[in-house]
Design a protein around this nucleic acid. Structure first.
Lengths: 229, 229
DNA sequence: AGCAATTGTGGCAATCCTGTGGCAGCGGGC
DNA sequence: GCCCGCTGCCACAGGATTGCCACAATTGCT
């Protein structure tokens, strides 16, 4: 699965530039022109890495503020500051806020790519090794991790991507209780607890449509959910 | 527990300089003058972070070689290159070898410290939380912390979260008396003493429903409760 | 035995949690 | 533009859980 990199930069030309460059290196790219826009988008789906222009718009501290906000969303999200300024003061301040790297805009493309790769390497150490498998069965449940398709008792269940990852997270360890935060993380979400409840509701609903006796998702009061073994 | 930082640098003056500076920032420091010396020492005890001067001695590539060797020792060890040179070529090569950062020697002390702190923050994300015991047996009692399930003599006992943590707290140290405050703390509660009594009542009741002869929870008058060994 | 302190019991009300239906925003496709 | 699916979130209702109380029973002590 390709990495998604978010670029936050107000100058459309520079933005397009970086987007194209990153694209050539095989990354998926999402670009945002401003802080609010970027924050809103990342709240619903975190990228794998964020590159932030520090002098967003007129607001001299827009980048810093965004960094703080993103850090609140995820402690693990790798963040790179990109800036015209490079006084020591700014670097130290940026890193203090939780950025992982701080580069000036005159950085060469190979250099930038090396920094990105180094960050991914480091970030991956914290991630559990992605299951190399592409198929996955638990009793009557079958998941295809390549096509994101699901079937129950041989019959297909049309799940959305979010639902798919939640089912995956639950079914990977049958019997283990997953709380709402864990489910969010495994589905790459940063949302309200209630939203997880909603997703589970929809998941149950879809499985029930296929099998009226479906009851594999247990609710553990006060804790979360569990895929019944 | 203080962090240990290893410095590999052939110039004794610079070495002492950095060592003193890092010491002032509260780090433990180990200094090495050469590649062989450093490698041998780190093989027996890994530091928490390594700072390597890239132009070790006359050997222009000494630093690079050491980086590769250290990376073989540990994929997780944070490595910072410190160098006089700073051509893009070197930076890219250094990062490719697995270094996490690449700084020139004219970097200010606060800047260097911010980089070090940022690396530690990132590296800490990968540290495994001490493998929490996930299963747990005491005679006829079995607790599964991942499943939030409890069984007595093989039969499941349906406990609520609060009850679960209290049983856990009691059974973890059979024979030891836990007072009501301790039990509250272990169940993350801030309540009245009488409430603990209520919970114990309910716990006993639920175990009795499964085994009419259950009597493993002793009351120690004036002290608290104890899981009978 | 008498007494004070402590614990057990039944029960109730407040609180917390979850399931449900629905709605609005967003983005993608036509 | 329009429609449609996905998503996040909210309000509400029903149910589970929990904190606490009054009162009974037990304990430790004299």
């Amino acid at each position: 699965m390709s990495r998604r990199i978010a670029i936050v930069e107000d100058d459309p030309a520079i933005r397009a530039n970086y987007a194209a460059a990153l694209g050539r290196y095989g990354y998926e790219v999402a670009t945002y022109g401003g802080r609010a826009e970027a924050l809103a988008a990342m709240k619903s789906r975190l990228p794998d890495l964020a590159i932030i222009d520090i002098g967003l718009g007129e607001d001299a501290d827009g980048g810093f503020a965004l960094c703080r906000e993103l850090r609140a969303l995820s402690a693990a999200l790798p963040i790179i500051f990109l800036t015209a300024r490079d006084s020591d003061f700014d670097v130290v301040a940026g890193l203090r806020l939780g950025a992982d790297d701080y580069l000036t805009k005159d950085v060469s493309l190979p250099h930038l790519m090396a920094r990105i790769a180094a960050l991914f390497r480091r970030a991956d150490l914290a991630r559990e090794p992605p299951a190399a498998e592409e198929r996955f069965e638990r009793g009557a449940l079958a998941l295809d991790l390549k096509r994101f398709s699901v079937s129950w008792q041989g019959r297909p269940v049309a799940l959305t991507l979010t639902e798919f990852w939640m089912v995956h997270a639950l079914a990977k360890f049958p019997g283990h209780v997953k709380n709402r935060d864990q489910l969010m993380r495994e589905a790459n979400l940063v949302v309200d607890d209630a939203t997880v409840t909603s997703h589970v509701k929809r998941i149950r609903h879809k499985f029930l449509a296929v099998d009226a006796a479906f009851d594999r998702i247990d609710t553990v009061y006060g804790m979360g959910y569990r895929w019944k073994a």
